[in-house]
Design a protein around this nucleic acid. Structure first.
Lengths: 224, 224
DNA sequence: GCAAAAGTGTTTGGGATACACCCATGC
DNA sequence: GCATGGGTGTATCCCAAACACTTTTGC
């Protein structure tokens, strides 16, 4: 009875794409070329069509608009929350399924919109409720760094202990004690030494490490 | 261009409604009266129309089908996750926004479908992927009991320390040490004594307590 | 007095925190 | 030799976990 007269809301997807550059956490934004919010910065996102999953829609839209392939250029993606209180589109009710993704050395290729990475603590004025979505994503990322090994998605395959600590500091936005950090990480048994060293500048070379697993795992003891 | 030919997927909502009865965690299920999955047990849920939020849709549907008002008969509700991989409806692609809610003394009133509470560790065979949704909700509830005061939503206004501990044990599905539990809870500063005692049976009466706040709060130090 | 649940402290081990100096390299 | 970041150990404190007996009531 109700079902026959049913008209669904619009479904959209939006992605918060993180990467660390020079010890600072950045998020990808596009400059909107159309109304509403023309010329404002916004998260890459758009309409979900029937027949594609929300993640497939996100891949398609972010590739086209921001020139970034979630699948190929990030190492981790996760659904965040579905926002349904904001009318994204003046034409009617929309629900937005949001995701976050993490990678490194992400550079946009062939984007339809102007795309740029901004530091999370220095964002421009944003369209819609996108500021809230980024805040939510950042909190989730902080939380996930604490109880999972997700930091692997922000680092190259081989990395120094300093780079690892810097990744934590960039996300947490506070400094950590070097000795305690290394002690704690040693206990967690997530990484292993390689034979290689990283030489750079006029100082002692640093040992390179790799993660034992490059898939998401929950830690036995949570971090911080 | 793309937008003009856009056809959205169907949007549905499903609710996992928890309550504790005699020290056991129960979840509300309805018996489906129509295809697909006719005569199977399932979570209460249905179609979201344009113009209503997902929570409004859930209230409307759960009230009608299961005879439970989320708003009036539960003390806490939270969005869980949006499942988009399962075709709920053979007619086409659907995304399901899921919620959990917690209350006590919930009894269905004027439901259109047969409604019954089942222990989470003894569920019948369920329609769709509803088993996965309940597992997800239970994990979320365990987690939230650990770092928030959400246990208030599973208890009456005045309760004994034993009832409080029983609520944790019902959700965690393991026993806790009485002295450590009370010591830990005392530190958390969430509850206060009342003048009243609860008398029952041939044993010493128990003091009744109340929560200082009946809204969700994050704990300074997480529990367990 | 006895059954049944309420209520109460101490000990121990481990992890978190705080903190400072030597090492290897390039120039 | 000096500037630069890499790498390492110890002492303290607090929290978590383990553990058993007394109290109050109804019958």
């Amino acid at each position: 009875m109700y079902e026959t007269e049913y008209v669904p809301p619009t479904v959209t997807v939006d992605g918060v794409i993180f990467q660390i550059i020079d010890g600072v956490l950045y998020v990808a934004l596009i400059k909107r070329s159309a109304e509403p919010f023309k010329d404002s910065w916004a998260l890459p996102g758009g309409y979900n069509a029937a027949g594609e999953t929300t993640l497939e829609a996100l891949e398609r839209i972010v590739k086209r608009k921001a020139g970034i392939s979630i699948k190929k250029q990030t190492k981790f993606a996760e659904q965040l929350f579905t926002f349904d209180t904001v009318a994204r589109d003046p034409r009617g009710h929309a629900v937005s399924v949001t995701y976050m993704a993490c990678g490194l050395d992400i550079s946009p290729q062939n984007s339809s919109e102007q795309t740029q990475f901004f530091p999370v603590d220095n964002l421009p004025k944003l369209a819609y409720d996108h500021k809230d979505i980024i805040t939510y994503a950042h909190e989730r990322l902080i939380s996930k760094l604490s109880y999972t090994n997700v930091v692997y998605s922000l680092l190259p395959e081989k990395f120094t202990m300093t780079a690892l600590q810097t990744a934590y500091e960039a996300v947490f936005q506070r400094e950590l004690d070097k000795r305690n950090f290394r002690k704690k990480f040693a206990q967690l048994d997530l990484i292993k030494e390689t034979d290689e060293m990283f030489k750079e500048g006029a100082h002692r070379p640093a040992r390179l490490y790799t993660f034992k697993q490059n898939t998401l795992q929950t830690l036995v003891r949570s971090f911080d």
